[in-house]
Design a protein around this nucleic acid. Structure first.
Lengths: 354, 354
DNA sequence: TATTTTAACGTGTACGTTACCGTTATGAAA
DNA sequence: TTTCATAACGGTAACGTACACGTTAAAATA
């Protein structure tokens, strides 16, 4: 398709011409380096504004062989393979932007070990970096870490869970409360009367906090929409091995004299599904979280009725991209970016994008 | 963060060095232009492969100042504002890639006028372009158009609806049949027994075809999952003014002696919602398509229970990006890219991303 | 044989920006 | 006065690639 029309007066060169200075001086004010008199700086700034000058990022990045290090600090994949998805998203984003001289440093911690967070964080802080993407699973530790970042003037974005008070560039993740609320609506739509059991399965007391937000939202739905004859009950399960789960469920269901629907507040819904199959209770309504292989298996079988997805891969992708936009492109980003509350069923799972 | 480590033998220069040729020759084989002996071409190709050479797109685009014209041929926003979303997505994509010298030419046609499609298409073909994104609403006309494209060797991607036989780069849009199937599941989940009415509202006989695919899927669900006492009925409405719709609905509902749920096969669900409000039938289950302002209004009011979304904005975005990836980046794309079948409710709509 | 063509390759400049280094002028310290 | 520091600026070589053009030698033609 031919070549561009003769460059119609744009770029630093044109700015330099109009201001009667060299392009070097223009460059100085663009990157507000020192060595320019206030008068010239003013003049050039005006010209830039009036031209609506946008530096050519291609040329810029090419010339300044600058390299930016982005660090990510997230849990390693453990019991569930949940955290593989954000990693995938992060790597996809990296693939797209490494042309611009972005290098990625990954640090992993153990969700079952607070200390490992601090350890990884210290390792991270050792090395220089220009931005960090962090999943602040442990509130206190993450707060300490981000304080360091602020002291060193390193911007950070939160992913997957938020610490509202902090001065993060952005939070990218689910609105936990509302996702529980949504689960409430779904169960309510399918069950007009009966017993509903809320199931919290988590070994870690810290991540427990997240589950509670979902539970609150869930309960709130039934509070806001009375009318049906729904009875809510709840069970916390700390021993996450399958046998303990099954025994606990047996006990509570016996106590309640049967349940009609179960809401599992995290991705461990697969364990409950497995239990229901074993007890031949597949017809119970079952809702849980996360588009994981094991969960989808039960979704396909019709044991799980709905999965709520929070786009973990997209979270990772957007997280890194947010850093990129802010640090490299100099764009402004929204302060929070809630993921959609995706409803996944046997009928639509094959088109779902994490 | 400092400068990059001394360029460790990469790029065309290194290839040239290894092959004992000039970089111009390397350039020739990279862009497979003529003027290179078969032997040298072979040798250079091998070196490229073994080095895993990836041309620096920044430098490439900068040097070549090449401009690619992408054309889009889609309906103009009319009765519904549905097509505003794809346009938004397209423009967002353009914003991202215009740095690479992409210029966008938009052509609109009238969904109520086949001729306007051909007219716009001819206009488009007048001008040179390197790729086109087309919503092939009229099968015959679009087939003709894409034949021209193939003759002129212009790649094209389909958006929003497909023409399976054609040799498009890619189809990006919903799986209509399955989306209907999904609607079936939702209604079935909330209604164990009763009358369900399928409502097709469309003036254009041509776009009717799409509605039928959805209806087929919807019916298929109840066929595959018998058990409930669900009776299906159907009504086609060609006169799309509100009064005709209401009269027709009055008649059919009287005839059926009441309905418990309605499935509207397109975005005109708002009209049915309006009707239900007027007749004080808001409690009926109502499902329809598309995340449009008017529809969301009734969703919020609880008149519409579920909306099925097909990410129109993302369709536009991905459509243009697919062209970009294929034509500029030289990447290979999947042949079809079905959008997820999104389930939107009163509870999650505020987080939905079109 | 002399001339022209052509295949096959090399040279050099441009793309828009960055950053290093050099230059000038001015004023303060010696 | 000279010396020197410093602020304010200019010149220009890169960055990696693209491409117009120049060159060479061999083959084709006259």
């Amino acid at each position: 398709m031919g070549r561009q029309k003769k460059t119609e007066l744009s770029g630093v060169k044109e700015i330099a011409r109009r201001a009667n200075v060299s392009i070097a001086t223009v460059d100085r004010v663009i990157h507000n380096r020192k060595g320019v008199s206030e008068a010239t700086r003013q003049k050039i700034s005006e010209i830039i504004a009036e031209m609506g000058f946008q530096p050519n990022i291609l040329a810029s990045r090419l010339a300044s062989k600058k390299v930016n290090h982005f660090a990510v600090l997230i849990p390693k994949s453990s019991e569930t393979d949940y955290w593989e998805s954000p990693v995938k998203g992060i790597e996809r984003a990296h693939q797209e932007i490494k042309q611009y001289g972005i290098v990625l440093d990954k640090y992993f911690y153990d969700l079952n070990d607070k200390k490992s967070f601090t350890k990884a964080a210290n390792l991270l802080l050792q090395k220089q970096c220009d931005g960090v993407l962090v999943a602040p699973s442990f509130i206190r530790e993450a707060t300490d870490f981000t304080s360091y970042c602020q002291a060193k003037n390193i911007p950070y974005v939160f992913i997957n869970s938020d610490i509202p008070g902090r001065d993060s560039l952005c939070y990218i993740g689910p609105h936990l409360y509302k996702s529980g609320y949504q689960a409430g609506q779904l169960i309510s739509f399918g069950l007009k009367a009966g017993n509903v059991l809320i199931v919290n399965i988590s070994r870690e007391i810290d991540s427990y906090h997240h589950l509670l937000r979902k539970e609150d939202g869930f309960r709130a739905y039934f509070n806001d929409n009375k009318g049906g004859q729904i009875e809510l009950a709840k069970i916390d399960i700390r021993d996450t091995d399958q046998q303990s789960i099954e025994e606990t469920l047996d006990a509570i269901i016996a106590e309640l004299q049967g349940v009609d629907a179960l809401f599992v507040t995290n991705s461990r819904v697969r364990s409950v599904a497995s239990y229901l199959v074993k007890r031949k209770l597949e017809h119970k309504i079952l809702i849980g979280y996360d588009f994981l292989q094991e969960n989808v298996k039960y979704l396909k079988q019709g044991v799980i009725d709905f999965l709520i997805g929070q786009k973990p891969e997209e979270q990772g992708y957007l997280g890194l991209m947010t850093l990129f936009q802010h640090i490299v492109m100099g764009g402004e980003m929204a302060q929070v970016n809630y993921m959609p509350i995706d409803i996944i069923t046997k009928e639509n799972y094959e088109f779902y994008k994490n």
